[in-house]
């Protein structure tokens, strides 16, 4: 059920778009994308602000190496246990761009005769990295549809992505990598018992949705081609707030656009917000300099304590008998 519900949901989305676009190009080509972008942008900002409303009362980095020591002869691990903002920046960059923490991943195995081993396990890191980077590159590549006079850097990305020069139109490496990585991430969720056990429909849905987006994209580029000039005209119409529906664009494109719209609208409501959340994780984005720099808790309040005077009152006689100094005789 956990897999079937999202599976049929994605199928339904494709069908809705294929049928619906025939009925109303404007709905699927203009209004739904606009609504999706609005939900995405405001939903995202709303969520981040909602997180931001809660303070960070304590400085609680998870330290992952030797701290900055009082002694110069003990070498600090400045990236995994940063004590300065620069170090934190480095740690965050490593985390966000290279998935530092996942790189540490190990696989625990229990052998008969009470032996445990922890082997290096890099597949999740590799799969995750492949997925996110190819997704990013594909996104950036799409900017050639989003901009009049496509800036040179975007052309470079596009050029590099197709540098193998396979077929015509040229095969994008990231198309293959993305679909492969999504498949891998999906399969590991289905095949690894523990991961399957904790997976929710909300875990399968985005994977299947992104697979659908990738598949419709690939179909349009390599197989059932769409007139790209018209496609860009439509997209540019949206971006310049003068929407048009050019003739001759097939339903396949509307299916692609609808799936993307769904992803955008779904994003702020879901775990996909890890994209914003990773920057706000207090165990990663803080320096481990607690003993050196004061950290203020905005809601710190006075508490009821058991004072020394009360303590002495409780034990004065015993203290005196034991020869301990007391404040009041």
């Amino acid at each position: 059920m956990k897999i079937l519900i999202p599976f049929f949901a994605v199928i339904a989305l494709v069908v809705i778009a294929l049928v619906g676009a025939q009925a109303s190009h404007a709905l699927f080509g203009i209004w739904i994308p606009y609504a999706a972008v609005l939900i995405f942008v405001f939903g995202f900002i709303f969520k981040v602000l909602k997180w931001g409303r809660s303070p960070v009362p304590f400085r609680i980095p998870t330290t992952a190496g030797q701290m900055k020591s009082f002694a110069p002869w003990i070498k600090q691990n400045k990236l995994d246990n940063p004590s300065s903002s620069l170090g934190v920046l480095g740690r965050m960059l490593l985390e966000v761009l290279a998935f530092r923490s996942l790189f540490r991943n190990t696989k625990t195995q229990l052998y008969p005769g009470t032996k445990l081993t922890y082997g290096s396990e890099k597949f999740l890191w590799l799969g995750g990295l492949a997925f996110h980077w190819s997704f990013l590159i594909i996104f950036v590549r799409h900017f050639r549809f989003f901009m009049q006079d496509v800036p040179y850097p975007i052309q470079i990305v596009e050029h590099l992505d197709s540098f193998l020069q396979i077929g015509a139109p040229l095969l994008y490496i990231t198309d293959v990598v993305l679909l492969g990585a999504v498949t891998f991430l999906f399969l590991r969720r289905v095949m690894m018992p523990q991961i399957k056990y904790i997976s929710l429909p909300a875990d399968y849905f985005p994977l299947l949705l992104i697979f659908g987006i990738g598949a419709t994209g690939v179909l349009m580029r390599y197989f059932a081609k769409v007139p790209v000039v018209s496609v860009k005209e439509l997209v540019m119409g949206l971006l310049t707030f003068s929407p048009v529906i050019p003739q001759g664009i097939s339903s396949l494109f509307y299916a692609h656009l609808f799936l993307v719209s769904t992803l955008l609208a779904y994003f702020p409501l879901s775990k996909l917000m890890h994209m914003g959340g990773v920057f706000l994780s207090p165990t990663r984005n803080m320096a481990n300099n607690n003993r050196e720099v004061r950290h203020i808790n905005p809601w710190n309040y006075p508490v009821h304590v058991h004072t020394y005077e009360e303590y002495e009152d409780d034990f004065r006689e015993k203290m005196k008998k034991a020869g301990l100094p007391v404040e009041k005789e």
Partner: peptide
């Protein structure tokens, strides 16, 4: 409302399972 850590950690887990076999109680 008091801890951003709590709020963020409630929202952003993707259940990738990297933590699963890192816990001594699970092992």
């Amino acid at each position: 409302g008091k801890y951003r850590s709590f709020k963020v950690f409630m929202d952003i887990c993707v259940r990738c399972g990297a933590c699963a076999d890192k816990c001594h109680f699970f092992i």
